[in-house]
Amino acid sequence: MMLAVYSLWRRDVIRFLRQPSRIIGALLTPVIFWFVIGSGLGSSFEGGFLPYYFPGSLALIVLFTAIFSTISIIEDRQEGFLQGVLASPAPRAAIVLGKALGSTTLAVLNGVMFLLLIPFSGLTPGPGDLLGAVACVALLGLALSGLGILIAWPLKSTQGFHAIMNVVLVPLWLLSGALFPAAGASAWVRALMQVNPLTPAVDILRAFLTGVPAANLATAAGTVAAFALVTLSIATLLVSRPSQ
């Protein structure tokens, strides 16, 4: 079991490191988002938008990394690599876990590189806070990878994934408090934000990075962990089911 997890994880990391365009793409997009949107909205936001938006950008990096990493499942299926894995005796849970850990590792790598921009953000978290943020990135990475796997698994084309990304995943991020706080939003948006499993993750990141205390850090972390457990479990069930 662990050998298979290790091997699939290792493959994802190697592939990533051998495709520099992926590193640049995953990293640059949120930086541009953060800097352009943040600067554009800057003055109309109390306390400046750049610092508010920083944790949200970090969440976006995790989301993008998870998406780009799990979308490869569809390519692997088309190219044939996946059938080799599925015909092997590796436990199906190991296949899901290997993929999720690979994607999470990349999310953490990208997240850490983004955190190097902290000095330009006007935020001043301590070393402990940064560690907490990285831990949250990892947990969120697992959850979104699980979500990505269970979306990608039944799809035949990457175009389908892009559609779901635009209709489901990006709104999930928009409504997580990453871009705007719940306080000023209309009631139905507030309700959506409340049930969005991404919201507590962004809350945690904001708590660690900006010092704005989260309502209840333990509950928030528990919610993200539960989110990860649910998506990974459903993904495993999906992968275990023989196709027709």
Binding site: L3, Y6, R11, I14, R18, V85, S88
Partner: peptide
Amino acid sequence: AVDPWLTVLENLRHHGYL
């Protein structure tokens, strides 16, 4: 069913692990 981004050796080792 091999990964073109991995070397021959890496592909074989990967398969062995599975």
